[in-house]
Design a protein around this nucleic acid. Structure first.
Lengths: 246, 246
DNA sequence: GGAATAGTGTCTCTGAGACAGTATAGT
DNA sequence: ACTATACTGTCTCAGAGACACTATTCC
């Protein structure tokens, strides 16, 4: 079956015009919840085009790595972040003209992370920072996102909202162990809707494998209150029936 | 913002090693329901590699078209099929080695079609045909699918099952007008589970915009029976709550 | 005790599964 | 008449929303 002798970079059986120069990149939409605010990890571009504008972290895939590997590597290189817990491809964008330099098809990944520590900007990025999604999507803002990243971010956030409905992925947003209030805040922040604490509790605890009780309790907050129970993330699972958005 | 003078094919600002030779293709998973059987449109490859094996229709994207346009065009070229009703991108595959010739990243599209007429094989394909999904996925079969298309097909079918749960896309599988029995057969075939006719009816009719009553009735079948009411597809809509799979 | 947060119980309504019953065609 | 299919109604149970009530901490 293998006709390729010594792995040629330009294969013999292809008409060069059949595959015009195309670059493939991966872009990451890394979401986190900080103080009731949904934030996304952005980098400030250090090169043209769109120099000085905010962009999603990402870059070209290498020859010997899968798309998933490329996504993890690029994120690590540009922001020093390692996203083991949750990383999912969600769609590709390839309109001609989305990059003024050449035809670029990008595969977008979605990652959920809890409290991120220090973010160190790496190659090609002047700095990296967490930016409020609301701010990043504002149309009238002076620093619009680079490329078509506004569209990518919008679609990714909608996908994230949907994932909270159908899977137990919300636990990736919080550090372990966590309280159910913290987990509920994730839902309320991503969905932008308040949830009834009692009903939320019932839904989560009645879904086998969503969370695992540790038996321990946290210290109450500064203003007092009953010490809440602590939980660990369960095995990632689909919710059936889904968690209905209010 | 545009730095590119006269649209160069090899841009100046890029390190050539930064984007190794990569080709981008689109592949189509065209599903249809024929006589209680879920079938997929496949083409027999007329060229190496995998000559003579079944593959998903698809091909290289062109420089001036979007991914969506490439998908529609490739399908039309290879099979003479025009899929206006429903076409959705669902994910990209780009593992190194998935094509023995070179690095190929493919964007996979999912399409649902009703009764397909004659299928005419086009360029690069010896013939095109509808093949039972069950048969196409059999591991012990003599003609395995080309490339990693078995994985693509498996994932696409699972995606299709999920789409029936959350959207009204099932109507794309049937010719308009249709009876609720025909629509129910779509669900039963894709899910591989029988559904209660009465409860199915209640769910569909209680979802605003799922189907639209025409007021007309079909002729009863050969063995008699009450003439069923005819419906047209409504506006594509999300189902809330979702249609639960048994 | 009062405030604040965590957690429990309970009523009600919606929606879905099970399934019996009715309607209208062909033979 | 009988059969086959289409359609309707009804009972019941699970799950979710609303919301009152109890529990435990800090001040």
């Amino acid at each position: 079956m293998k006709r390729t002798p010594s792995k040629p970079r330009i294969p013999a059986g292809y008409d060069p015009r059949a595959f015009p120069p195309v670059a493939v990149t991966v872009d990451m939409v890394v979401l986190t919840v900080v103080a009731d605010d949904l934030q996304v990890l952005l980098v400030e571009r250090g090169a043209e085009p769109f120099r000085g504008r905010w962009a999603l972290p990402g870059g070209f895939i290498r020859e010997d790595e899968s798309l998933d590997e490329a996504a993890s590597r690029e994120l690590l290189e540009e922001t020093g972040l390692n996203v083991a817990p949750y990383l999912e491809q969600f769609r590709a964008y390839g309109n001609p003209g989305r990059d003024p330099r050449m035809r670029v098809v990008t595969v977008v990944y979605l990652a959920f992370v809890p409290n991120v520590g220090t973010i160190t900007a790496g190659t090609d990025a002047r700095r990296a920072a967490l930016v409020s999604v609301r701010r990043a999507l504002e149309t009238g803002t002076r620093k619009k996102l680079a490329f078509d990243h506004r569209t990518l971010l919008q679609d990714a956030v909608e996908k994230a909202r949907s994932l909270l409905e159908t899977t137990s992925v919300a636990t990736a947003f919080v550090d372990s162990p966590f309280t159910l209030s913290e987990l509920r805040t994730v839902y309320e922040t991503v969905w932008g809707q308040p949830l009834d604490p009692g009903n939320f509790r019932r839904k989560v605890l009645s879904t086998p494998g969503f969370v695992i009780a540790t038996g321990r309790q946290a210290r109450p907050g500064a203003e007092g209150g009953k010490p809440p129970d602590l939980y660990r993330p369960g095995k990632m699972t689909g919710l059936n029936p889904a968690f209905r958005r209010p």
